[in-house]
């Protein structure tokens, strides 16, 4: 198990080949004084030129948790195991996976295969577990409105952690649990958060005050999303994907959303 100690940590997930948002996120984290940056997985998917994001992350020496997409690409599985249940969502997921697999260099795929499923972070002494979906399953969705407090407390108890950071859903949220514990879904930097804002989201986790839960600073990152949408179109990726990048509204992968999260979006 990789262990990292820090006081102020930028944590982002769901890069989805969005190399422009990734560069902007790393610049933002440095400017915001983060002393570490950690990625919660899913480097590929959805966006164009998947090797570019891999190269940026590897050259920066950033610690990466293995997401379900990284696991599938690394092991040459036939699909991404994103966990979709709807035929339309699965059709888009299959298009995206075929594109990404074909354009991810074998050396990057081999690197993805060996990524760790979790990282332990000591946030000024506060034991924090970082994983992609949930501590027990890389493709488990932890949505804000479909996850009870009791379940989150159980996940923390069984993980021997006071804080837990996940991604996978693409929608950011956090919940404080007594005593002094916290769960954070950092969202995704690869596509916007389905709220009509094309900027992407990540979190800076900060050391807890005496007896309190670790703090969260939400960071909204603007980047040249029009340039990314142009690259996606040039690569022949679905127009629906480019629309999401430009408008901030999800157009696909919607059928796994719970009632509340689905009701907030345009589609």
């Amino acid at each position: 198990m990789i262990r990292i100690s820090a006081r102020r940590v930028a944590i982002f997930g769901g890069v989805y080949s969005n190399h422009l948002a990734l560069e902007a996120t790393l610049a933002d984290a440095a400017a915001a004084g983060a002393d570490e940056a950690i990625c919660l997985g899913d480097l590929g998917a959805f966006g164009p030129h998947p090797d570019r994001a891999c190269e940026i992350v590897r050259q920066a020496g950033i610690a990466v948790v293995q997401g379900n997409y990284d696991h599938s690409l690394g092991h040459g599985l036939p699909d991404c195991r994103c966990g979709y249940t709807d035929p339309r969502d699965n059709r888009f997921a299959a298009l995206s996976y075929r594109y990404t697999y074909a354009r991810t260099a074998p050396t990057h795929r081999a690197w993805m295969r060996d990524l760790p499923p979790a990282i332990r972070l000591s946030l000024d002494g506060c034991e924090t577990l970082l994983c992609h979906g949930s501590p027990r399953r890389a493709n488990e969705f932890l949505w804000e409105s479909s996850t009870s407090d009791a379940f989150l407390a159980w996940l923390l108890d069984t993980s021997d952690a006071a804080a837990l950071c996940v991604s996978h859903t693409g929608l950011p949220w956090t919940r404080e649990l007594p005593p002094g514990r916290r769960v954070v879904n950092v969202g995704a930097i690869g596509r916007p958060a389905n709220d009509g804002d094309p900027r992407v989201v990540y979190a800076i986790l900060t050391a807890a005050p005496e007896g309190g839960a670790p703090g969260v600073e939400w960071r909204r990152v603007a980047y040249d999303h029009s340039a990314l949408a142009s690259e996606m179109r040039e690569e022949g990726l679905p127009e629906e994907f480019a629309e999401t990048i430009e408008t901030g509204w999800w157009t696909t992968c919607l059928e796994v959303l719970p009632q509340k999260e689905r009701a907030r979006g345009r589609y």
Partner: peptide, 11 residues
Amino acid sequence: NPGVVAPETPF
């Protein structure tokens, strides 16, 4: 409900 348990082989 959809999305609660990821299907093993969705495609």
